[in-house]
Simulated assay, not measured.
Amino acid sequence: MISKSLYLPIYFILFLSLVAASRFIPGSDGLPEDCFIGAGTASWYGERFHGKLTASGEKYDTETLTAAHKSLPFNTVVRVVNIEKDKTIEVRINNRGPFTGDRIIDLSRKAARKIDIIEDGLAEVELYLIKEGDKPIEDLECE
């Protein structure tokens, strides 16, 4: 029988173990804050694609907070930071692209409007992982 005086230390160790393990569960809140994915040029896409199917199979809606990325798993949530204007938005990956130049993300019109890139069409951004999507992200090393 375990002494009652040992219950508290055992519970504490179990709690710490669960917190540490949650770091490795995809989609858990155990991700490190500011998990940097990359930096580069963002663009946005709008009316021409509105209502058409995305690569994930859902209809594209210009007024949702979504984005296209070449390789991030669908339903991954990323924070996009417009470096020049210091504006931030969180978007869910539901499409593939961009396939033009060296761009790293294509934002919906609503997302682009919120970080103020509608007029210029392009912006230098940083991407941070907020929540993993349908699959774990391969070779992700957070700084």
Rank of each mutant, 00 (worst) to 15 (best):
L122M: 08
D61T: 00
A39S: 14
K110W: 14
T88L: 08
A42G: 05
H69R: 05
R92A: 12
I118H: 09
I117M: 13
F49R: 06
D61H: 13
T66I: 15
K110L: 15
G97D: 08
K52I: 04
H50S: 05
R79K: 14
N82F: 04
Y60I: 06
R113N: 10
E58S: 14
S28D: 05
G40W: 07
V80F: 06
G30T: 01
G57S: 09
D86V: 01
F36A: 07
I93G: 00
I118Y: 09
V80M: 06
K87I: 03
K85M: 05
R113P: 01
G46K: 07
G51D: 06
G27C: 02
D86R: 15
K59V: 07
G30Q: 02
S56K: 01
T41R: 13
I104W: 04
Y45K: 14
T88N: 14
A111T: 07
T100V: 15
G101C: 03
H69V: 01
G121E: 12
L72P: 00
K70Q: 13
A68C: 09
R103M: 09
T62E: 15
L122R: 07
L53M: 15
D116Q: 03
E90A: 02
C35V: 02
H50P: 03
I25S: 01
A112Y: 09
L65T: 03
K59R: 14
L53I: 02
S108E: 10
S56Q: 05
A42L: 08
K59N: 10
T41C: 04
E124P: 00
E126Q: 15
I104P: 03
G27Q: 02
P98S: 12
P73R: 09
D102Y: 10
T88G: 02
V81M: 10
S56L: 04
V78D: 03
A39I: 04
A68F: 07
I37P: 05
P32I: 10
E90S: 03
K110A: 14
V77L: 10
L122D: 05
A39Q: 14
D120K: 15
P73Q: 05
R103H: 07
Y60R: 05
I105C: 07
L107Q: 10
F36I: 00
I83W: 00
